[in-house]
Amino acid sequence: MMKRLSAIYIGVFALTLMGFTWMIRSVTNPEQLIIGEWKETGWVYERLNKVGDEEKVNLQGNRHGNLVLHKAEIWSFLPKGRLQLQKSGGRDETIGWAIKGRGNILEIKYNNGHKEQYDLSQLVADRMVLNFELDTQVKGLAKLTFERL
């Protein structure tokens, strides 16, 4: 009886482990999928406190000292956590990136130590959607849409 029970327990745990390994191996890791050049195609505030807050948000967003607004940029995700930002004015900047959580958060680290966290809401072969929580006063989510170059 004891032997049979042990076999059942070991079997269930082994099957769980095998199922997990199979799932992980059969899909692409977001850290590999993100590597490459992405062009920003959209930048919108997705959620606001109330209708008509767009102007207020834009003003606060521009005034905010720590907030870096990425608009019309090319983001090149390079291996070893390097990210090259090609800004619309032609100026380049190389910063750091990391994917955290369960593969759902993109963290960007600027060279001055400032960090930004984006919710990686969609990441497929040719499209990436990032959601950025601005701050507690604005309570809006900026949605950044990218297409692979």
Binding site: M23, I24, T28, P30, K100, R102, E107
Partner: peptide, 30 residues
């Protein structure tokens, strides 16, 4: 790591959400 580690109640909801979205990598991790 930008994730909770001492409670799993929220992860059950996240698991369901990731299954619905078809994010199989995240589903496996959660």
């Amino acid at each position: 790591f930008l994730s909770f580690s001492s409670n799993v109640t929220g992860y059950y909801a996240i698991l369901a959400a990731e299954i619905v979205k078809g994010n199989w990598y995240q589903t496996a991790i959660v």
